[in-house]
């Protein structure tokens, strides 16, 4: 990009800051923008500006929202006594897409990671504990990822809620639907057997 002046280099640099975008993809996206009509490019710019201006965090569940509280938290038809705890907003959206869950959510915006120095104070755990204070919640479903950090977060939640009289459950772990037992690894199979249920 040498010698091509400020604007395009700046655009490539901005794209490179996005997750999963390397130098080549950044360049491809930048040239795509350049080739758009002025209206199309402005529409994209406006969409980004609007999203940044309108979207904020729900003061109850910490999910991203345009209204506060968010639509889910404000919906009286949902079960307000159950909270599903996830790491990212995209995971709540995924569970919602499944169409089976009717309770509320809590978004932690991360997970405890000892190796990266991320402790309980660095994620939205304080907000979760505040929601449990009025005793209206009867169950917390911990749906953090089934990896070291997600498990550490789940363990921490179990410890700090031990005395609050709330039922804490963990999402099941095991063989994915549509896969084959033959290709499951030892650890997943062990979890699947541990978490077996009566039929």
């Amino acid at each position: 990009m040498r010698g091509e002046g400020g604007a395009i280099t700046k655009l490539v640099e901005e794209f490179r800051r996005l997750p999963g975008i390397g130098p080549k993809s950044a360049q491809r996206l930048a040239f795509h923008i350049i080739n758009l009509s002025k209206e199309e490019a402005l529409r994209l710019a406006q969409a980004i500006t609007e999203a940044k201006e309108k979207i904020r965090f729900c003061s109850v569940c910490c999910n991203i929202t345009e209204t506060d509280p968010c639509e889910t938290c404000a919906d009286p038809r949902r079960d307000h006594s159950v909270i599903c705890v996830v790491e990212k907003p995209s995971e709540a959206a995924l569970i919602e897409k499944g169409g089976r869950y009717r309770g509320l959510y809590h978004i932690l915006h991360g997970s405890i990671s000892p190796l990266d120095g991320i402790g309980p104070d660095d994620i939205r755990l304080r907000e979760l504990l505040a929601r449990l204070a009025d005793k209206s919640v009867s169950e917390l479903i911990v749906a953090t990822n089934p990896n070291t950090n997600g498990e550490a977060t789940a363990m921490y939640i179990r410890e700090v809620t031990r005395l609050l009289g709330v039922r804490v459950t963990r999402i099941a772990q095991g063989v994915p639907v549509g896969s084959d037992l033959e290709f499951a690894d030892n650890s997943t199979l062990a979890h699947a057997l541990e978490g077996r249920r009566e039929m």
């Binding site: 000892p114 190796l115 070291t148 498990e151 550490a152 363990m155 410890e159 690894d185 030892n186 650890s187």
Partner: peptide, 23 residues
Amino acid sequence: ETLDAFPSIRSDLTRLGLASLIC
């Protein structure tokens, strides 16, 4: 292939913190 996943380390926050420090 897993030889040892140290499940007892993963099921305890203090042990997990210490193992993280060691690693």
